[in-house]
Amino acid sequence: MKSKLKPYIINTVAIIFTYVILILLMQTGIINSYYEGIVISIGINIILATSLNLATGYLGQLALGHAGFMAIGAYASAICTSMMNLPDLLQLIVSILIGGIFAGIFGILIGIPALRLKGDYLAIITLGFGEIIRVVILNMKITGGARGFRGILPLTSFNSVFWITVIIVLIIYTLINSRHGRAIISIREDEIASEAVGINTTYYKIFAFSLAAFFAGIGGGLYAHYYTVLDPASFGFMRSIEILIIVVLGGMGSLTGSIVAAIILTILPQLLLDFSDYRMLIYSILLIIMMIFRPQGLLGKTEFSLTKLFKITPNNKERSE
């Protein structure tokens, strides 16, 4: 029982430590509001990348429309906030949940036709979906069309992003290490074998995919209430690809990989702001180098583990590697 608790204690300490450090750096002004924005972007990108990892890394279904779900979440939550008047934190939580639910519903609607079949239909369908969503938003009145959606209350703060990111990552992590997560992984490994051991693969495919969409919607909601302005152009195909690049770079099937890659790929463009025209070029080169030297991504399918770093006997019940 004791050794079961140890990883929890270590990870809880690590999370609180990170939080306190960041808060201190902000209060002392070492992290100014510009850097704070980067930290918030990192959090949102972690949410987007880990959720896409659930669909692409763990379930094994290539999805090319994650920005579409993000957009649905962003607009739905922004509209929600504009129509309600709750206390700030509660409003943010209600709005992003509604954004997530909308995105999740679209995930189910797309997942049902695309995932009932075996094979890579999802890539094509999500690709089309992402573009359709963008065009629809561009032409709707309630979303502000091409002028964008303005005047969203700035409800997203460092605190809310930090803790929501932590919660989402933890949910995905514990899910993946439960029987339901095993079922999801089995589909990636061999869908026919998965069915042959009694797993309802269609159900788990749709579940994992729509949960990924739900979290992407929440990411979008946080984004909306941080930037306060939404422009349909920022949810295009390239955004989906950027999220995918984070996942591939970090390792398909590694949450810690996605986190590390999200940090790197959020900071890097800021450092290279002068070269912003070449951002996609830099990404591409990075990817090519990666594919040559480390095709499985930074961490492959393994997780970076503090517990292991401190040489604590791993709990056999974990899928520890």
Binding site: R179, I185, S186, D190, I192, A193, V197, I199, R319
Partner: peptide, 17 residues
Amino acid sequence: RLFKDLSVIDNVKMAFH
């Protein structure tokens, strides 16, 4: 048809799902 990249015991656990 095994779950090739998973451990032996995880292969068996799948079937208890």
